[in-house]
Design a protein around this nucleic acid. Structure first.
Length: 599
DNA sequence: AGTGTCTGCCCC
DNA sequence: ATTCTGC
DNA sequence: GCAGAATGGGCAGACACT
């Protein structure tokens, strides 16, 4: 127990945090744990709190989701898997399900079986260590091993403790606390100004490490955390707007506008001969892009830098940018050589964060770009993102349409003012994205029939969390799925959906519905709702326009409910599969057409 | 050897 | 990725 | 406006099953 603390103490505070909605109160409650925890246990407390085991770039994964978690709970409680699953489905929260199941009278734990009692309380260190062991299990029999480890952990836990262990496993603590609230609390406990703590976190995004450093060595230790090639920084994020006029207004009338490429955002670090590439979520993705490592070695004069750009798949002959789905074939561990040949990529850089020992984050955008250009040699695979300095909404719209006709998602508009620093981790108004689907004129909406629903989780427990939607085929008189939608519903929408759909409920799939997906509830096609998305993509699971040979149908990318119920339409008046196919075929032309119209 | 299910602080 | 909600 | 928590399509990897 030395250098450790009872898990039950932490769980008590979790319960208190869950009971409030005020972030200031949550931070105060967190402070009570941080004051109590021994310095050596600080990192573990913070990791558990944030639902992670190690910093992102180390790639430690639990490898357990809700199915294996339910198996473990079933084993630990002695109740059938079905019973656990049923409880989970009904409650919409695996944590609450675990708590209930583990406190049932009929439940007999493994310990009971051996005639043992919970002799002593679990500690934070023990919970953390168990979870780490679960993460380490691999190879044949790994799933059984993970389930065994977890079920003994559940058996050793009180029902309240089991609740948070279960939630940790499925990655949803649902405390209303995340990194920012932890920062608030640490700032309070260790009497460090919020700004210096935030800065340290942004350049060294490992809150467990920072918390322990503070506890062990005090606030002066933070000074050693600075931008370091090899350790990812928190990327700057962007706000969104749907017109050039608004955007230029926000940015003071003038902006650097860049193509927004549909690829993977990449943070590229070089320290001497070592190059590392990190994803937007700070995963180390270097192994996926050995070609890019070589390209930047060739293209950059500097030996020490952190730069940022977008990796996209490109047809090497035509220079044409390929769909995002192509790039996803590069997200692999094995057969990278083959993938490098089959899916060639290029890099479009747009910022520099660190160059030759100098942290550039506090410099204005122009100065950072100058540093970037200064370090770049002409290279066939490494470019600067196509850009323009613009101060006129009409010109900006033209550039935006040009970007779309060149297979980009839209443009990024960036402040060029003196204060246009690289705002780490912030979704501020210095960068604004402008995408096609933000403008309804440029993106068709679809009116789709609701053919199924999925039970919601968390704050949507007991309600439908998402609906299964289908387009109509007048030739076969059948409905083919093209999307699930769970975004765009207000609380009011969610509340009334069950009653609206009650009249259509079925115990099985309707004979006129063609679906590979299995929703929790089936409906007779009846209700029609309006949906918008970014584009139509090829789909392995949706049946709309399914080609039986290729096995691919069509789906909506980033679907969301527009808020409009088309009660004026019968399901047979829904968007047809033919229309969806037309949208799929025409979407590439939209940019060109609109440019023509605007001239 | 081939297929199916689950998982990922996945990528978007 | 987008969207909604409480503060 | 921030911070957090709901939710989407689709890819490969890992493992289990047949």
């Amino acid at each position: 127990m030395e250098n450790d603390l009872p898990f039950s103490e932490v769980v008590k505070v979790f319960e208190a945090i869950e009971a409030t909605t005020q972030r200031t109160v949550m931070a105060k409650l967190l402070s009570s744990i941080f004051k109590e925890a021994p310095p050596q246990a600080m990192d573990k407390v913070v990791y558990i709190l944030l639902g992670q085991l190690r910093p992102d770039w180390e790639g430690v994964e639990l490898g357990v989701g809700e199915k294996l978690a339910m198996r473990a709970i079933s084993t630990a409680s002695g109740l059938p898997f079905k019973k656990v699953e049923e409880t989970y489905k009904k409650l919409g929260d695996l944590g609450e399900a675990a708590r209930q199941v583990m406190s049932m009278k009929g439940a007999s734990t493994i310990l009971d079986y051996f005639g043992a009692k919970r002799s002593r309380a679990l500690t934070v260190g023990e919970v953390y260590e168990s979870l780490m062991n679960v993460a380490k299990a691999s190879g044949e029999g790994a799933q059984d091993a993970k389930v065994r480890l977890l079920s003994s952990l559940f058996a050793a836990a009180s029902p309240d403790e089991a609740k948070y262990i279960a939630r940790f496993i499925v990655g949803k603590l649902r405390l209303g606390v995340a990194d920012m609230t932890v920062l608030d609390s640490l700032s309070d406990v260790f009497n460090v100004p919020k700004e210096s703590l935030e800065k340290a976190y942004h350049v060294h995004p490992d809150l467990g490490h920072i918390a322990r450093l503070l506890a062990e060595r005090g606030r002066d230790a933070l000074a050693e955390l600075r931008v370091t090639p090899g350790i990812p920084i928190q990327p700057m994020l962007a706000e969104r707007l749907s017109s050039s006029k608004e955007i230029l207004g926000k940015l003071g009338g003038i902006a650097i506008c860049e193509y927004k490429y549909d690829g993977e955002r990449a943070q590229i670090h070089r320290r001497g001969d070592s190059v590392r590439i990190f994803s937007r979520r700070l995963e180390d993705i270097t192994h996926e892009y050995p070609d890019v490592v070589g390209y930047v070695m060739e293209a950059m004069e500097s030996r020490d830098f952190v730069v940022e750009g977008e990796i996209v798949t490109v047809d090497p002959d035509t220079g044409e940018i390929k769909p995002f789905q192509e790039l996803m074939h590069r997200k692999r561990k094995h057969d990278i050589k083959e993938a490098v040949e089959e899916y060639p990529v290029e890099v479009f850089l747009f910022d520099a964060i660190y160059m030759d020992g100098v942290d550039l984050t506090d410099l204005p955008l122009i100065d950072r770009k100058r540093a970037l250009w200064g370090a770049m040699k002409p290279h066939p695979k490494v470019h600067h993102a196509t850009w323009r300095l613009l101060d006129d909404p009409a010109e900006t719209d033209k550039f935006f349409l040009e970007a779309i006709s060149n297979d980009c998602e839209g443009i990024m508009c960036k402040s060029v003012k003196r204060d246009s620093i690289y705002e780490l981790g912030a979704r501020g108004w210095l960068w604004i994205k402008y995408k096609r689907d933000y403008k309804s004129e440029l993106t068709d909406t679809l009116d789709l029939a609701v053919v199924g629903a999925f039970w919601g989780r968390g704050r949507r427990a007991g309600l439908y969390g998402a609906l299964l939607l289908a387009a109509y085929d007048p030739d076969t008189d059948q409905f083919y799925t093209v999307a699930k939608v769970g975004s765009g519903f207000t609380d009011e929408d969610l509340k009334k959906l069950p009653e609206m759909l009650d009249q259509y409920k079925l115990p099985h799939k309707h004979p006129r519905v063609v679906s590979k997906m299995e929703p929790d509830v089936w409906f007779v096609p009846g209700l029609v709702i309006e949906v918008i998305g970014a584009e139509i993509t090829q789909s392995p699971i949706h049946t709309c326009c399914m080609d039986p040979k290729a096995g691919t149908g069509l789906a909506i990318r980033f679907p969301r409910f527009t808020g409009r119920y088309r009660t004026d339409k019968s399901p047979e008046q829904a968007t047809t599969v033919r229309e969806v196919m037309e949208m799929f075929r025409n979407q590439k032309k939209i940019g060109e057409q609109s440019i023509d119209e605007s001239i």
